[in-house]
Design a protein around this nucleic acid. Structure first.
Lengths: 137, 137
DNA sequence: ATGTATGCAAAACATTTGCACCTGG
DNA sequence: CCAGGTGCAAATGTTTTGCATACAT
């Protein structure tokens, strides 16, 4: 029951929050923009404002329920947080997003930050390319 | 003489383009937003519209004279292209930007793309942290 | 001359915010 | 009941665009 997730996150259980969470948990597009979520809500017959979707997603991010990816400096997409850190591969043709984990890169990033005297707080890595499926077409 | 750079890039030599190039070549802030360039032009006494600055920077990017970084999904900053690929470290306190090159990471990225069946076209890596200078304060 | 570049103001876009009203606990 | 949440419309900040004018070649 998702209400628990919300309560645990310190968020009052409201209809918009439940519905947004439901969308994120049931979509087969793991990565959705605020607009995507908004449209999905409309299709589901829920009258929830876009501003609320933004607010809810931002709160979810703060609560650690979702993470926000900033794709190529344009709009943001959100994904349910599953605890496992990973980076992303993006297909520039079909916008497919795949995830990967690479310890070598993670380690090197920390080493580089240290070398440069930075206390690393975060990092973002996106690999852009043409996916298998789009290469053939 | 910068006019050569422009001509070589296939761009007509105009005053706005010359001035923008001059700013980028003489600033001590290697990384500037369109707004930064615009303000620098005003201080220099040049009456060049912000829209033109955006157009010129975009053309320069297309011509390979500058590259565009998309910082944290907000605005973009530009840097003179010097041919050497590098990634960036950003201080979240003072916005300082440092550059680094790491062959291990470069190689791993290519390997990951290959593993996932992607034909890699590009990638972006930003490490965020608190720089040496900001840690003490 | 003539096609391209520029300036300005308006549009576009993703996101945020003010405020009156509604709702969950 | 009452703090906090929501909807709407308006504001934001950045970047783009339409169009009449100015300029490089």
């Amino acid at each position: 029951m998702e209400s628990q997730d919300l309560r645990k996150a310190g968020l009052k259980v409201t209809l918009p929050r439940l519905k947004v969470l439901e969308i994120l948990e049931t979509t087969d597009h793991r990565h959705m923009s605020a607009e995507d979520v908004y449209k999905a809500l409309l299709e589901m017959g829920e009258e929830i404002g876009l501003a609320t979707v933004y607010r809810v997603l931002t709160q979810f991010e703060g609560a650690g329920l979702v993470s926000r990816l900033s794709i190529d400096g344009g709009h943001a997409v959100f994904e349910l947080e599953d605890g496992s850190h990973h980076d992303h591969l993006l297909c520039v043709r079909c916008n497919r997003i795949e995830e990967f984990v690479d310890d070598v890169i993670e380690k090197r990033q920390r080493a580089i930050a240290a070398e440069k005297g930075f206390e690393m707080t975060d990092h973002s890595l996106y690999i852009y390319g043409i996916c298998r499926h789009c290469q053939s077409s």
